[in-house]
Design a protein around this nucleic acid. Structure first.
Lengths: 341, 341
DNA sequence: AAGCGCGATGTTAGCGCTTTCAACATTATA
DNA sequence: TATAATGTTGAAAGCGCTAACATCGCGCTT
C-alpha cells in the first residue's frame, strides 16, 4: 500500500480476492460481473486509490479515447469557441482532447500532426483544408477519422465541417451594394497559410467584379488580428483611397478596431462610411453603433466535428462526410438601413 | 507494406537490416548510433511511413510527454491566453497538452482529473486552489508535479503560479478612493466554485471596510461573464443605489458591458460614474473612453506553469514552488484623472 | 440422470516499445 | 603484444492491461 508506485489492477484484484480480469470487467462491463463481486472490487478500488492506467489499456486494446485537435491559436476567441464545442461533446462521451496550436504555420502543423498521431488518437480535427503534402499523407495513412474544419471550399481528406468563406463574403458584398455602397474596401487577415482568409478575399473580389464595381489592389489590405491593426489599416486605406464608402473587414476584431478609430476621428458610421465585419463576436452586438457582420457557428463547428468522429467510431455509416453549417448576414447599425423586406 | 495496420518499429528495423532497439536509438539517442546505420534507419522510417507508437513507448518507459490542464472554460478569452502560454512552452519542449474544461463545476473537475490521470501525464495544471477533497487526494497521490494557477491566496497542493486576487482588488479600491470615489459598487463573477472570484469580492470588501466606506450588500452584485450581464447588473445597481459614484467590476467584460450601457443611457463616464474593470483585455485599451483596469499576466501564467513542471521533471530543485506574477493598476479614462505622481 | 446451456470467473498470450545486460569489434594504453 | 577502454549492436524480459478462449458450477430439459 505504501509502496510509492501507484496501484495496479493486480493490486486491486488481490485486495478483492479476484483476478485482474475481473477488475477490468468491473470497470468496463460492470453488468458482466456478479453484484457481490462487483461491490467487493469497487471497495478495493477505493481503498487502494486505484486509477486505471489507460496507456497500458490502450496498448492492449489498440484503441485510445483521445481525440487530437489542431488550431492556429487559442487566444483568437474564434477558435476558443470551437474548442469548447469539442471538449463539451467529447467530455460527455468519455473522450479527451489533445490540443495543439500551430501559430498559422503549416510546417508546425505537420510537426504537431506527427506528435499527435504518435499518441494513436481515435480521431483528429484540424483547421482548414490547406496542409503540407507530408501532413496530408500522414493524415490519410493514419487510418482514423479526420475532420477538417472552418472551410468547405476545397478537397477534403476525409470529413469536413464548416461553411463557405467565399460565399459568405460574396453575400456580404452584395448586401453592402444593395445598401448603397459603390466603392468597397477590404481588410482581411494575412492569407499566408490561411485558406479561410484566402477564400474570404476571393469572395470579396469575385462579388465586386461580378457587380461591376472597382476591384483594385489599392482597396485591399491585410492586417493582423487586433483592434490596433483594424484602426491602422483603416487609416492606411483612407489615406490611399479617400473615396471608399464602405469597408468590409475579414473579422470583427479588425472591424471593431476600425469602428473605434472612426469614433476617434469623428467619421460618422454609417453616414460617412459603412463598416461590416465577420464572425459575429459578442462585442459586435454590444457596441454602439452595433456592428453589421456575418454570423457563423463557431461552437457548433467543434460540436459537430466531435459528433462526426464519434459516430464514425461507433460504426455509424449514415453520417454525411460534409456538414455545411452555413452563415447569416446580420445587419445592424454600422451599415445603412435597408427597407424592411 | 500494404498491410493496413501501421508500421511498427520492427518493420522499420527489418527494412533497415537492424534490430528494433537500433531504430529506437536512432529516434531517441541518434548520436549513439553509427552514421551509416543512422542514415539507413532514417531512410527506412521514411519509406515505411513509420510514426512511433508512444503509447507503447510510454508503457515501457513508464513516462509520457503529456501534460494535463484543466480550465473552467476555453471560451472565456482570459483562460485562452493561459492555454496559449502552456502550448507554446510545452510544444517547444516536445510535450503535449491534454485539455479539459470543467464548466466551473468542482464535481466535473474531479471527474476530469481522474480521466487525465489515467493517461499518466508527466504533470498537471489546474485552475484555482479550490477543489473537492477527492480531487486533492487524487492529485497528491499521483506523484507528479501539480501546478495550481490564477490564485496564490491559499494552501497549495504542490506548486502555484498566479497573483493575489485579493490584493489586486484591494489596491484598485484604494486607487478609486484616491481618485475621489466615496460610494463604490461591486459587480463580480459568481463566486460558487470559483475561489478567484471569491477572493476578488473579499478584497473589495476588505478595502472598503478599511477605508471607512459603506460596505453594504446592496452595493454588491453577481453577473455572468458577458457584456449583457454587465449592462444588466449596472441597471440593477443604479436602480437600488443611485448614489454610487464608482463601480468596480470583477472582470473587463462586465465593465465594458456597463460602459456601453452608460453610453446608451447618456451617463457620463467618469464624470457621473467611474468604472473600473479587471483583466486588461485588449479591448479595454481600444474602447473610448479607455477602461481603467487591473492588468494581470494571463499568458505568463500558462508559460510559467509549463516551465515549473518541466524544470521539476528535469530534476531542477532550485525552482520556487510559488510564483507570484503580480498585477498592475492601469488607470485610463473611465476613472477621474489623478495628479501626476 | 445424463446432457446442455449459460452465467461467472480465470488463464494465457501478447500489444509495441524500452530497459538492462551482454556480446562483439575496434581503438587506445602499457 | 596483451589488456583495457570505448563504441556499436543485439537478445531477453517485462511495462499494465485486454482479447480470446477455457473452465467451472448450476439449473434446466427431456
Amino acid at each position: 500500500m505504501d509502496q510509492h508506485s501507484p496501484a495496479r489492477m493486480e493490486d486491486v484484484a488481490q485486495v478483492a480476492g479476484v483476478s485482474a480480469i475481473t477488475v477490468s470487467r468491473v470497470i468496463h462491463h460492470p453488468d458482466k460481473v456478479a453484484d457481490a463481486t462487483r461491490e467487493r472490487v469497487l471497495k478495493a478500488i477505493e481503498t487502494t486509490g486505484y486509477v486505471p492506467n489507460r496507456v497500458a489499456g490502450s496498448l492492449a486494446s489498440n484503441q485510445t479515447r483521445i481525440i487530437g485537435a489542431l488550431v492556429p491559436t487559442v487566444t483568437n476567441s474564434i477558435f476558443a469557441d470551437t474548442i469548447d464545442g469539442l471538449t463539451d461533446e467529447l467530455g460527455a462521451q468519455g473522450y479527451q482532447l489533445l490540443l495543439g496550436a500551430t501559430g498559422y504555420s503549416l510546417a508546425e502543423e505537420t510537426r504537431l500532426i506527427n506528435a499527435i498521431l504518435a499518441q494513436r488518437p481515435a480521431g483528429i480535427v484540424v483547421t482548414g483544408l490547406q496542409h503540407e503534402p507530408a501532413a496530408e499523407s500522414l493524415l490519410r495513412a493514419a487510418g482514423i477519422p479526420v475532420v477538417e474544419t472552418w472551410n468547405v471550399d476545397g478537397q477534403p481528406i476525409d470529413m469536413t465541417v464548416g461553411f463557405s468563406n467565399f460565399n459568405a463574403c460574396h453575400a456580404m458584398v452584395e448586401r453592402l451594394v444593395a445598401r448603397g455602397a459603390r466603392c468597397i474596401g477590404y481588410v482581411g487577415a494575412p492569407t499566408l497559410a490561411n485558406d479561410r482568409a484566402a477564400q474570404r478575399v476571393a469572395g470579396y473580389r469575385a462579388a465586386v467584379a461580378k457587380l461591376g464595381l472597382e476591384a483594385s489592389d489599392s482597396l485591399v489590405f491585410e492586417g493582423k488580428f487586433s483592434f490596433a491593426a483594424g484602426a491602422g489599416r483603416l487609416r492606411d486605406l483612407l489615406a490611399t483611397r479617400p473615396d471608399v464608402d464602405a469597408v468590409f473587414f475579414g473579422n470583427d476584431i479588425l472591424a471593431l478596431g476600425a469602428l473605434f478609430e472612426c469614433q476617434r476621428q469623428g467619421i460618422r458610421v454609417p453616414a460617412d462610411l459603412a463598416i461590416a465585419g465577420f464572425d459575429d463576436v459578442e462585442l459586435a452586438a454590444s457596441v454602439a453603433p452595433a456592428l453589421t457582420t456575418v454570423r457563423i457557428h463557431r461552437y457548433e463547428i467543434g460540436r459537430q466535428a466531435a459528433r462526426m468522429i464519434l459516430e464514425r467510431l461507433r460504426g455509424d455509416t449514415t453520417t454525411p462526410d460534409l456538414t455545411d453549417l452555413g452563415f447569416e448576414i446580420i445587419e445592424r447599425e454600422t451599415t445603412p438601413a435597408g427597407r424592411a423586406d
